[in-house]
Every structure is written in structure tokens, then in C-alpha cells.
Design a protein around this nucleic acid. Structure first.
Lengths: 219, 219, 219, 219
DNA sequence: GATGAATGAGCGTTCATTCAT
DNA sequence: GATGAATGAACGCTCATTCAT
């Protein structure tokens, strides 16, 4: 056999790395970053402490990776929602926000860790990157919406940041208190109207956009 | 002796307490909450470790005080901007946002600590309180603006949270990177337009509102 | 007035000293030696911490004094019981043991502190002195009993130590657990028989000696 | 390889644990429980502080183990002396007391720590257990002696406590002062007579029982 | 490559004692 | 003589990291 993309050791290595990240994310989702202790994590991942350090030079580097991976999963879900080109850009923006919010509500521990939980400064950079990815997603949708004259001309970079900030603030406050809103749909509806106003869509037009939302679609 | 508001011991006590809080805030502004170690702080404040504990029962209690004091200064500035009743509610909202942003830009370390710096959970509560005070301020201005038909009827609680989130996000990203925007005035102008759109003010009307802004007024 | 045994300052000094010792004994009786903290004690005694150190050079010295005074009170009660010369020496021995046991049962915290509570080594010396005083009391009663042929000739020093040990052990176990025996009178009766056997009095003769016991006599 | 009772790591672990306990007992024997400080102990045991905590979850747990081990050695010696069924129960009682006393005289530091040294309350429980084991040993011998009509019917539980108290008191005073009696044999003889009287054996009969004692037998 | 026992600097906190006022 | 704020050495304990096997 001439070609072997992933020889046994390499696959093994990747599997171990994945297992570490997985278990770390589990711990973080349950008890936050500070609940992760290297010996405990090693045991959960079925390996020795020293082995952890073959895969990650430090706890911080591990957290960075965990953070980036978990973020990427969120981003991917939102990208998927944004990518369905059979809808207009504003409809897709609405879908993205829906996905963001509903996923946060269903995995509040993870959302808390990604959005607001205290973490070492260097990892904060990753959090900023995470948010910047949302920016880019929003910017592209807003630029498209402007091109199609669905919303007025505006500084889309700034608008995107405001969207990220608004959604994070509202969702973050909820998950920080581990309280779910009494009527999630109505709550989301109000948040959505604010977000749409932020990009120049009046409440009259919002009504049509949010009409088709169905919370059961999102996992 | 007719007047002795603060006898020597009382003044001394307050001065020590203030010095501790000051030094702690300095440390926090430079290296974040986690960089504050009681022995180090004691040395900086020119006293023994035990003395720290005469003033604060625990590190956590100290952080709480530091946070609340610093927050209160910010809130007070914004309240002052909101209180000038010779202007309409929207004008005052614009002034509050201006103050919020300019103060953050001039004291980025402090703003970072107040807005986004990782911190122990119990102090997070104080941070939430801090944000809720902004909420209340915004809600009262927005309710007034609705009553005067300056903005459309809306969920002002949600709008207030979105304002806090938007401003915090935008300002926080700046101070997290310790980068100042190239053109602060133009930058603030864009942020203001977003905030105003969020509460239902179109860009056409924004122009008038932001016209009178003068960044030199704020310290 | 030519003679003044206790000038004002001296009386004041003694009163302060007494108050310190009293309060310390209260604290000890409630929470043990380790519950005594100098600042707390100073407050209870209505004086400053520094003043405590004008009366006692160290905490240990204070404990020593407290221990000796409290011991002396116990010893005095037992001496009183031993001193009533209208009874025979064995009757008086029985009375002394009764007093010892009943007082311990009524003030278990104090008894625990005097008999078994862990304490700094130098104060242990005072505890040994305390026990030696009981020795002497027992020795004198036993010598008298031998002279009157109520008990056989024996090493009364050794017998006295065994009495102190037996009573302390039995009482100490009770107060250590803060459990009172279900039937104190019967319990004391059994202990008394053991003690009397130890000095050579058979159970037949014990019966007569313990007959007149009345627990209501002792405070 | 047919036999490997203790693989290297296990043996190593046990050796370390033993070394810690040994060093702790040395420190205790010299300076008492309160003289044991974890950093100091770690140094003496040739390991880091953290390593101590791999073997014992807390200082208290360590003390508990040290106390129980040292106690068990004493108990075992006494049990051995009690178990030689070729002698009658009273003879064996005498042997047990002999062993108790002689061992205390030869290791006064250890005896002091086990019997009277001040110690944290939780470990006091272990000390009480230690004494209760002696109780049980004495009770079984006394019950047997009553069955064989060697001693009169009596409350053997109470008698056992009195024996433990008497012996501890007498031995404890000696070791507390680190003074050895001038004539150990005669001293033991007197103590023995007291103990025997306590269980109802007159001095006349004691003489026979103590006749065969030989202090050189005990280590 | 994997192991996991060992490390030790560092933490927050306590409290008997001191000494300037 | 009295004060009580200040002291600071010492405590038990943690846990990310290392390295001999």
C-alpha cells in the first residue's frame, strides 16, 4: 500500500487529542474552567497526567484549543443557518440569531464558558476571535442585505459588533443566572426586534421576518 | 474647637482603606484580577498582610469593594449626563452613551476590568449589578422618550440590555486590545447611530442628535 | 488615714486581673482553650488587647493562672468535704469523691478543661500540680484511716494516685463525650465501690459507707 | 516468576508511608503533637510537602494514623501477654499490667504522646478508642476471673476503666516528668497491689501473684 | 511513547504580640 | 496606664508541571 494518510500512530495521536478536548469540554460545561484539574482530566481521558503534556504544552494551551473547538462548533451551526441561499439575507440573519440563542439556551454551561466565564487572559484572545467570526458572518449577511436594498446603507462592521454584543449580553445574563425565560419564544421575539432595529429594520417589517420561526428546528 | 468632622483615627482608617482599594485597582488595571496577590498588594499599600485583613475580611470582599467603587464612579458620571433635564430624553441618552464610551477610551484598563476582565464568580454578581444599573438608566430615558413620542413603543427592558451589550462589546474589544480607534469621533458617531437604530431612531434623525457632540467635554 | 491595704490603683489592678481570669474561664468552659483569642477576651473583659499584656506576659501565663484558680476552687470544695471532722476518715473520703464527681457532672466544660483538654505543655505542669493536691488530700485521709484501722496498711501515695486516676478516667470519659450517665446515682455507687476496693475496703463494708449519700447536697 | 507479593511501586508506597509515620512519631515523641509542622516533617522524611499529601489527606489524618499505629503496637504487646492460656486470668492480668508499665517506662516519649499529650480533638477520639481496647482486654480477663471465683462479683466495666485510669495516671505522671522511679520493681509492685485491690484481691493474695514477675522479660 | 509519583512555590488566612500615641 | 491598629511569621493546603522509570 503506497499511501497511508493517517498511520496508526498519527491516528492514535489525533484520537487521544480529541478525547482530551472532549473530556475537558464536558468538565467545563458542568463546572466551568476552574473545575478542570489536570490530574482529574487525565483520569477521565484514560491516560496519565504526563501524557496530557505530550499533547498540550500547558493547561492554558489546552483551554485555548478547547475554546476554539467549541467555538467552531457554534460558528459552524450558525454558518449552516446562514448558508441556505434559498432565503433572503435578512431571513438568514434571523435564522442565525435564532440558532445562536437556542443553542445557548439548550447548553447553558457551554454558552457561559464561551461567552462570559472568567478565563485566563491569553485565552480571552480566542474568545475575541470567536466573536470576530460572528462579526464576519453578520457583516457578509448585512452587506448582501444592503446590496439587495433590504436595509439602509450603514457601517456593517459596527452593526455586526452591536449584534454580537446585544445577543451575548442578553443570552449571557440568562445563562449566568441559569434562569431560562418563562416564554422563550416571546423573549426571542423581542430580542429579534431589537436586533433588526439595530440594522435598520422597523418593527413593522420585523413582524413578517419572525413569523416563520419554529424553535423545534434547532438542536 | 467647633468642627471636627473626621477625627484622626477615623480619617486614618478611611485613608488606609482608600489606599488599599486604589492599589488594588491599579494592580487590576495593569494585570487583571488574578494578578492581585494579598502579600504583593500589602507591600504596595505599605502595610502588613494582616493589616489588609483588618480592612477586608477576605480577598473576595476586597475585590467586591474595588469593583463597586470603580463602577459607582462610572455610573455617577452617566447619571449626571442623564440628569440634565434641559435636554430631551434622546439627547440625554446620546450624552450618556458618549460619556460611557469616552471614559472607557481614556481608562481602558479600568474599563476592561469593569466590563470584561475575568473575575471570580461572586464578583461577577457585582458586575451584573453594575450592568443592571445602566439598564435602569436607559429604561427610564427610553420610557420618557416613548412618552414624548420620540421613539416607537417597544420593550424598553430588552432595548436597554441590547444597548449595554452593544456598547460594552464595542468598547470592550477596543480596550481588550488596548487599541484606540484611529478616528475616535467618527467611531463614536457610528456606534451612536447603531444604538439609536436599536431604539428605533433612523439614521436621518440620528444626524441631528449627534451633531452637537463634543468629545472635549468629557473626562 | 495611716493605713491603706489596697490603694485605689492596686485594687483596680486586682479587679482587672480578676475580670480577665473570669472571662477567660467562661470562654474556656464553653469552647475550650483553643476558643480563647486575646482580642476577643480583651473585648469581653472591657479593655484593650495591650492592657491584657500588662496583666499577663503571655497567653500561656494567663492560661496558667486561669487553670490554677479554677483548680483551686475545685480543691477547696473537696477540702471542705474532707474537713468535717465529725465523720470518720473513710466517710470523708467518700464525701470528697462525691463532690469531685458531682461537680464535674454539673460543669462538664470546666471539668473537661481541668482534667483532659489538650493544652500547651507548660500549663500541663499546672494540671499535674492540681492532681498532686488531690493526692495530698487523699493521702492524709488514707493515713488517718490506716491509723484508725479502717483500711489495711498500704502505700497511700500510690493509692491516692490510683484514686485520682480512676476518678479522672471515669469522669473524663463522660465529659469528653458530654454524655451524662443514665442513672448518675447508681453510676457513682459503682465508681465508689471500685475506689473503696482500691484502698482495701470490701464491697460489704462499702454498702454502709455509701448508704448516706445524697446527691442533692452538692452544687 | 512465581511470587511477587509486593511489586516495586507498592513497596515503595508503603515504605514512604512508613517513613512519614516514623518521622512523625519521632517528632511527636520529642516535642509533642504541636511540634509537628508539615513542611518540617516533609523535610525530615526527605520529600516535598505535596508528597505528604499524596499519602495523607490532611495533617489530622496523619496524626490519626500515627496514633493508631503506635497504639496498636502497645495493644498487641498486651494482648500477647493476656493470651497465654497456660496461666490463670489473674496471673495474666498481672502480666498485662506489667507489660503496659514496663513499655511505658522504656519509651516515655511515646507513652506520653499516647496517654496524655495534648492533641487535637479528633485524635482524642482515637485515644479514647485506644483506652477502650484496654477496657475490653481487662473486662474479658476480669469476667473470666469472676467465673473462676478468683475475684468477687463486680461491675467489670467500671473496674476496667479504673484500672486504665490508675495505670495511666501513675505511668503518665512519671513520663510527664521524664523521671524514672528509683526502684522500678518496687514501684511496679506497689502499683500492682493497688490494681489488684481495685478488683477485689487482697494484698495477701497479691503477694503470690506478683512473686513471679521478672522485669527483664519485657521489651 | 507513556507513566504517575513527586515536586515546591505559592496561595489565602490567622492571631499572639508589639509599640506609637 | 491604657489603647488598639499594625505586625508578619507561620500555618495547612493546592495543583500545574516535571522527569526518572
Amino acid at each position: 500500500m503506497a499511501y497511508q494518510a493517517t498511520p496508526r500512530t498519527e491516528r492514535h495521536h489525533r484520537e487521544n487529542r480529541d478525547r482530551i478536548v472532549d473530556k475537558a469540554l464536558s468538565l467545563i460545561s458542568l463546572g466551568g474552567y476552574q473545575s478542570v484539574q489536570m490530574p482529574k482530566l487525565a483520569e477521565m481521558a484514560g491516560m496519565a497526567v504526563g501524557t496530557l503534556y505530550r499533547y498540550f504544552p500547558s493547561k492554558e494551551a489546552l483551554f485555548d484549543e478547547v475554546f476554539r473547538r467549541a467555538s467552531q462548533v457554534e460558528i459552524d451551526h450558525c454558518m449552516a443557518a446562514a448558508g441556505n441561499s434559498s432565503y433572503g439575507p435578512l431571513d438568514r440573519l434571523v435564522r442565525v440569531i435564532e440558532v445562536f440563542v437556542y443553542r445557548a439556551l439548550r447548553g447553558p454551561g457551554r454558552a457561559y464558558a464561551l461567552l462570559i466565564e472568567p478565563i485566563a487572559l491569553p485565552v480571552q484572545t480566542a474568545r475575541l476571535d470567536f466573536r470576530r467570526q460572528y462579526d464576519r458572518l453578520f457583516v457578509s449577511l448585512l452587506d448582501e442585505a444592503i446590496a439587495q436594498r433590504e436595509i439602509p446603507v450603514q457601517d456593517t462592521g459596527m452593526a455586526a459588533q452591536c449584534l454580537v454584543g446585544s445577543i451575548s449580553e442578553v443570552v449571557g445574563r440568562m445563562v449566568a443566572g441559569y434562569e431560562m425565560p418563562a416564554e422563550p419564544d416571546k423573549f426571542l421575539d423581542q430580542l429579534m426586534r431589537c436586533c433588526l432595529r439595530t440594522v435598520g429594520v422597523g418593527d413593522a417589517d420585523s413582524a413578517r421576518l419572525v413569523a416563520g420561526m419554529d424553535s423545534n428546528r434547532y438542536g
